[in-house]
Amino acid sequence: MEADKIVVNKLKEHSRLSGDDIAEIRTFSFAPRELADHEDLIRQGDEPDRTVVVLSGWVARYHLLSGGGRQYLSFHMAGDWPDAQALFLERMDHAVCALGPVLVAGIAHKELTRAISRRPSLGFAIWRETLIDAAMFREAITNNSARTKPARMAHLFCELFYRARALGHVRGDQLQLPLSLIQLGEALGMAIATVNRTLVELRASRVVDFRSGTLTVHNWPRMCAIGDFDPGYLHLKPPR
C-alpha cells in the first residue's frame, strides 16, 4: 500500500478527515528507508527532523538502560505511525528499532508543520495519534505493575491482536508476531524462565499459544477475561 494511503487509513481509525485533509496528505514527499533486523531507526537522544510510517514489518520502542539492557515500551506493525510524537519533541527520550526486515517512509517535520498550519483539523488528528500512544503507555504501566504474570502476558497479546486486526494483519485466528521470548520478557518485566512458565500456563488454558513468531488465539473472549483487556484505551473503531 502506498504511504499516503497508510497515513489516511491510520488517522481515519480514530479521527474524521475531510477531503481537503486527505488531499493535503497526498502532497507529502515520503522518503523510503529499509532497516535490517535490530537496526535502530531512532536512537535515544537523537534530534530527528522527520517522522515515519511503517510500510512493512514490525518496529519496537524501547528504553536503553545504563547496563545495556532494554525495556520495550510498545510494538508497532505495518500501517502504524510509531514516532508521530517526534514532531512535537526536540530530543527523543527513547529509541525505535526494527524487529526483522522493515520498510518505512519518512516525512520531513517541516512539511508536516506546514500542512498543519494549512489544515488544523489534520493537526488535531496527528495530535490525537500521539495521545493514543500516551494511553498505551499508561496501560502498559498498569499492566506491568498491577496484574498477575498470566494476565500481563494475555493483555499484551490482546492489545497486539486487536490492533493488528484493525489494520488487517490477522489471518483467521493467527498473527505473525516476530518477537523472541527474550524480547517478550523485556516488555513484560519477566525473566526468560518466567516467560516460559507463563506461556506453559496460558497454553494449558487452551486460550492462546505463541510459538516461533506465531500468535494463535483459540478463545478471544476468554483471553480478554484473563488479561482484563478493555480496548477502550486504544480509541479505535471496533474491528469486525
Rank of each mutant, 00 (worst) to 15 (best):
H218A: 02
D83P: 04
D46T: 08
F30R: 04
E159D: 06
Q71W: 11
A31S: 05
A115S: 12
A98H: 14
S66G: 01
R119Y: 01
M77G: 14
V52Q: 01
F88Y: 14
D93G: 15
R206L: 13
R163P: 10
T148Q: 07
W58S: 06
P150V: 01
P231M: 08
E159N: 01
L175R: 03
V8R: 03
L184A: 10
R128H: 03
A86N: 09
P48A: 01
I25N: 05
F157R: 00
E47T: 05
V102T: 13
V207I: 09
V59C: 09
S29A: 15
R152N: 15
V59E: 11
G100T: 03
M92H: 12
C97R: 06
A23F: 02
H155S: 05
G189T: 00
K12T: 09
M1T: 10
S15K: 07
P238W: 02
D20M: 04
Y72T: 10
E47F: 11
L87G: 01
L112Q: 05
R128F: 13
S212D: 14
A134P: 02
A98F: 11
K237H: 14
M92Y: 07
L87K: 06
L167G: 00
D20Y: 02
D228C: 09
Y233C: 06
V170L: 03
W220M: 02
A135D: 10
I116A: 11
H155N: 06
A105S: 08
G172R: 13
P32E: 00
G106C: 00
P120R: 14
T198V: 04
V208M: 03
R211N: 09
E159M: 12
G227N: 11
Y72I: 08
M153Y: 04
S180F: 00
A31F: 13
A191P: 05
H14E: 09
D228S: 07
A125I: 01
T148L: 15
T216N: 06
M136T: 09
R163M: 06
A23E: 08
A125K: 04
L188Y: 07
H109Q: 14
R197M: 03
R240F: 15
F137I: 14
G189W: 06
L234Y: 14
P238F: 07
L234D: 07
F161V: 01
R61H: 00
R26P: 10
G185I: 03
V54H: 13
A23M: 10
H94N: 11
M136Y: 05
F75D: 03
T113V: 14
C224D: 07
D37I: 10
S117M: 12
I192R: 13
R50W: 15
V96G: 02
G67W: 12
D46Q: 01
F88W: 12
I6W: 07
F210W: 08
P238S: 04
S18H: 11
R165Y: 07
V96F: 02
I182H: 14
A140F: 02
A108H: 10
I6S: 02
D83Y: 00
A95N: 11
V217D: 05
D4V: 04
S212E: 02
N219V: 09
R222Y: 08
L89T: 06
L65A: 14
A146Q: 11
A225K: 12
L103A: 11
A134L: 15
R222S: 08
H169F: 02
F210D: 03
R61K: 11
E2H: 10
D46I: 00
